[in-house]
Amino acid sequence: MVAVMTKALPRAMAAGLLALLAVPGLARPAAAPPSADEMIARAHLAMFYPGEDMRARVTMRLVSRAGGERRRELTMTRRDLQDGGEQRYFIYFHRPPDVRDMTFLVWKYPGRDDDRWLYVPAIKLVRRIAASDRRSSFAGSDFSYEDISGREPEEDTHTLVREEKTGARDAYVVESVPKDPGSVDFGRKLSWIDKATWLPLKEEYYDRRGELARVFTAEEVKAVQGFWTVTKRLMKNVQTGHSTEAVLSDVRYNLKLAPDLFSERALRAPPAELTR
């Protein structure tokens, strides 16, 4: 078709068209970089939806500016009801001692508030947790609930800023600006998305005044059963100097977890394989 058109057009215009075709993206449609929206959507799936379900032991180190350290150890399981959609999380806390044996259940729905339950073993109480704010800290760490279970890509406007290497890896740098600025604590976010795995290798959160507030880095990425997994994550609050490192071990995907695991029954009596 292009050939037919060139015949009918003056040379100058034809030259212009050829110049356009020379732009790499247009010349090779198959390798065209996806839109920024698609990049974030793919990163969202790669980070928060690999496999149908998963289980991992998570060790978090909370380090204050002064170097004081606290540890949180938990077993996390996740089951997807559909890719990119509804999810269920079940968490068993191993330590510190004051939260040992506590269990936590989240039913996550895209587009509306989660249902959350916390089980307090000391008084055998299942307590419903108000979940209106997904930016709340998870277990006192620098990770918010949203950092752990993902932020809906549709909540922000995404723009591809540039492409660059981070470490040895080629990445797209995407800027995300919340559509509803009042709903979140950041004004904008920059994500470095790995071209090969689609995992976010680094994220910078800027506060509403434009100052850098928090930095996420994927410190270690491993393939587990064919799924690229960030097995060591660091979230640093550059304004307070506090940081949290989360290390995932014993990661398993596609365990065929029973729906029953994400119920009040499991909250009260978590299966033995989670509590060890």
């Binding site: 419903r128 108000a130 979940a131 209106s132 704010d133 930016r135 709340s136 800290s137 604590d185």
Partner: peptide, 10 residues
């Protein structure tokens, strides 16, 4: 009725 008014204040 229970509500988280701002993060970490319920």
């Amino acid at each position: 009725y229970q509500r988280e008014i701002v993060p970490d204040l319920t």
